[in-house]
């Protein structure tokens, strides 16, 4: 599917899913939607009907709270039935938990939710790929707030030291985290410089520009892991949600939902 069309469908799905559930991290989900759509739509080698195919590229969502985006993307691509999305976050038993889980969900590589784990897991997969001379690439997506976690830096140090050029970390840099503006909570300075100093090949892109994302995500530098700093907008695509941290974990209903869906449809 064309990545732009995929992103649009995901945005509509996740608005309905979170609205139906009355919960979910919609701001964060919309922030990563273009990144996920470009990865699945343009970059990764995927096998929706054979999700464990050893040749597949691997994707781990380290910021597990944005899991609805991955569920919607996988359903749109036919990994599982789209009707299942209605069960997202269901109080009466569901496979689709708020934080992304692999159990029973074809295409989800790994369960996450506690920040700072998924990047290291992805590095382990990349290391295995190198050891086995396997052709697959491994992508991990972390949030900029998540980069407060020390384990992120441990993982990138290891990936650089071991020359894991089959590994790409994408940082969803929307500059907001759970309780507010990142620079006011824990100012991490410039990510590009920091990751470069850890030995990674760093690229900075507009995280909603599909062409820029595609170019960066295709790029591999021999002997170096790649880090793509994707500058994003939390709540992207819905005017009243953009950069509004109320929607870190709120959802929309009624007229607001209609308005949001209408805005997405027009894009």
């Amino acid at each position: 599917m064309d990545s732009k069309k995929l992103a649009k469908e995901i945005r509509k799905d996740v608005l309905l899913m979170t609205s139906n559930a009355g919960a979910g991290h919609i701001g964060s989900i919309l922030s990563i939607t273009d990144i996920v759509a470009v990865l699945y739509g343009k970059i990764m080698n995927i096998f929706p009907k054979d999700p464990k195919n050893p040749k597949r590229d691997r994707f781990i969502l380290s910021k597990g709270h944005a899991g609805a985006c991955v569920y919607a993307c996988l359903a749109e691509l036919g990994f599982f039935d789209k009707a299942e999305l209605e069960n997202y976050y269901s109080p009466n038993g569901t496979k689709l938990s708020g934080h992304v889980t692999h159990k029973g969900n074809a295409g989800v590589e790994f369960s996450t939710g506690s920040l700072g784990h998924g990047v290291s897991v992805a590095v382990g997969m990349a290391l295995a790929g190198k050891m086995d001379k396997a052709p697959y690439r491994v992508f991990a997506l972390a949030g900029n707030g998540e980069c407060n976690e020390g384990s992120i830096w441990e993982a990138v140090a290891f990936a650089s030291h071991n020359k894991l050029d089959n590994f790409t970390l994408i940082v969803d840099h929307n500059k907001i985290q759970s309780m507010g503006d990142s620079d006011k909570i824990l100012d991490m300075g410039t990510y590009a410089e920091k990751f470069a100093s850890f030995g990674a090949y760093v690229m900075e892109v507009d995280g909603h520009n599909h062409a820029e994302l595609a170019t960066a995500l295709k790029t591999r530098k021999r002997g170096q892991p790649a880090v793509v700093i994707a500058h994003t907008v939390k709540g992207k695509g819905v005017s009243f949600m953009e950069n509004n941290n109320l929607y870190h974990s709120a959802c929309v209903k009624g007229d607001d939902l209609k308005k949001a869906l209408k805005e997405i449809e027009k894009q």
């Binding site: 290291s120 382990g124 997969m125 290391l127 295995a128 050891m131 441990e154 290891f158 030291h161």
Partner: peptide, 26 residues
């Protein structure tokens, strides 16, 4: 030597990375 990794003094990464390796059949 190719199956031995000193991960440095970084246990959090080592543990999660072990899971990644095991996911790939190690």
């Amino acid at each position: 030597p190719k199956r031995y990794f000193n991960c440095g003094i970084a246990e959090q990464n080592m543990l999660s990375m072990a899971s990644g390796l095991a996911m790939e059949g190690k």
